[in-house]
Computed example of a mutant assay.
Amino acid sequence: MDELPPSPSLPAVRAHKGRGAASNPEGRFESIRHHAEDDGWQSALLDDEAPRPQTCVTEERAKSVITRNDSPDIAFSQAVNPYRGCEHGCIYCFARPSHSYLNLSPGLDFETKLRAKTNLAEVLRAELAKPGYKISPINIGSNTDPYQPVEKKWRLTRAALELLAECHHPCTLVTKNALVERDLDLLAPMAREGLVQVLVSVNSLDNRLAARLEPRASAPHRRIKAIRTLADAGVPVGVLVAPIIPALNDKDMEAVLAQAFAAGARSAGYTTLRLPWELKALFREWLALHAPQRAEHVMSLLQQMNGGRDYDSNFATRMHGAGVFSDLLRKRFELACRKHGFTRVRELILDTSRFVPPRKASPQGELF
């Protein structure tokens, strides 16, 4: 009897259309590691026949929704995130490692297995109504994007804004999705009371690069249009050139700032790429697939900005890096801001004097 031919090797990791990550590595808390073996059937499946990862949203009943921080390099002390995970699939997202706390992968799981805090408005109302609550602006979208595609269905960000508008509570929003325009009927009146600022993230004007870096976010030109729409409605809007990835998108910094200012943005900020925990390997994998010829150069510059490591968590440097290349980026940013007249994102002061604590929900309803 003739011997069977040896099984072909497993196909190399490949990109998935519409997704940022190419693989699904275990999180750092997992004690079991999975290793794929080809049984002969896998190799018979053509790439275009392989099933694409589908988005699945699980409802979550949150016990609390306001998170607080005292980090000296973050401009806000309170935040609300309606979703865990983000369908935008940005490969550089610093929030990817947070999915490990759910026993899910920071890779494909982060952008396909999402959690929606369906009782967000109810819990937020209770927290704002507490007698000891100390008001300060709430940032919506500090970890994952509040206007990611699933928001069209779940409308959790909308529910949070309706409550904040009701009790005149100031907030900031950070997004890279033009869906923010949907809520102009709430944002414009809040803006007239000095209660809101929207920050739109645009780190490149290259649509082809953006489609690989942040596959399900709005295209760069669409985000610029959203800035114009917000500004025309009287909503204070800023632009975040974030993250800047050396030798990949840093060339677009000045052009992004110029177009954003022309569209109506009047404040600006930037950060450089951060690679905490599992994100290091995921980003290296992405470089090998999408920018193999410059991968070594990108990582070399990044390490120069982080004391010879892929990432340095030092509060003093983690947002902008350190060293010669970091200084060059800072000078370029400052020069462009002076040229156009941008203020810094931190400089807008929202009004906290109008806040009226919401009434606690009651099964008896309200008479007045």
Rank of each mutant, 00 (worst) to 15 (best):
A79Q: 11
A79G: 07
V80Y: 03
V80R: 02
N81D: 14
N81W: 08
P82I: 13
Y83Q: 03
C86H: 11
C86G: 12
E87R: 05
E87Q: 13
H88E: 02
G89W: 02
C90H: 10
C90Y: 11
I91Y: 08
C93R: 05
C93Q: 06
C93H: 08
C93A: 06
F94S: 14
A95M: 10
R96F: 01
R96Q: 02
P97G: 13
H99M: 13
H99W: 08
S100T: 07
S100H: 03
S100K: 02
Y101C: 10
L102R: 13
L102H: 14
L104H: 02
S105E: 07
S105A: 09
S105L: 02
P106T: 01
G107R: 04
G107Q: 02
G107K: 00
L108G: 06
L108Y: 03
D109W: 03
F110W: 08
F110P: 01
E111Y: 09
T112I: 02
K113G: 00
K113I: 04
R115Y: 11
A116C: 08
K117V: 01
K117L: 05
T118S: 01
N119G: 01
L120Y: 02
L120S: 04
A121K: 06
E122L: 00
E122C: 00
E122F: 00
V123Q: 03
V123K: 02
V123C: 02
L124Q: 04
L124T: 00
R125H: 04
R125M: 00
E127D: 01
E127I: 04
A129S: 11
A129E: 09
A129D: 08
A129C: 11
K130A: 15
K130C: 08
K130L: 15
K130I: 09
G132N: 14
G132L: 10
G132F: 03
G132I: 03
G132T: 10
Y133F: 13
Y133S: 00
Y133D: 00
K134N: 07
K134D: 11
K134W: 06
I135N: 09
I135R: 10
I135C: 11
S136C: 14
S136A: 15
P137I: 10
P137C: 10
I138V: 14
N139T: 14
I140P: 05
I140M: 14
I140Y: 08
G141V: 12
G141R: 01
G141E: 12
G141F: 08
S142P: 13
S142W: 10
N143R: 13
N143G: 06
N143D: 11
N143P: 06
T144H: 05
T144I: 11
T144G: 05
D145I: 07
Y147A: 08
Q148F: 08
Q148E: 14
Q148H: 11
P149M: 10
P149I: 07
V150K: 01
V150I: 15
V150R: 04
K152R: 15
K153I: 14
K153E: 15
W154P: 04
L156A: 02
L156M: 07
T157G: 12
T157A: 07
T157I: 11
T157C: 12
R158L: 12
R158Q: 15
A159K: 07
A159S: 14
A159W: 00
A159Q: 09
A159R: 05
A160K: 01
A160G: 12
A160W: 03
L161P: 04
L161I: 15
E162G: 09
L163K: 07
L163C: 08
L164R: 01
L164M: 15
A165N: 14
A165R: 14
A165D: 14
E166G: 10
H168R: 15
H169G: 03
H169F: 07
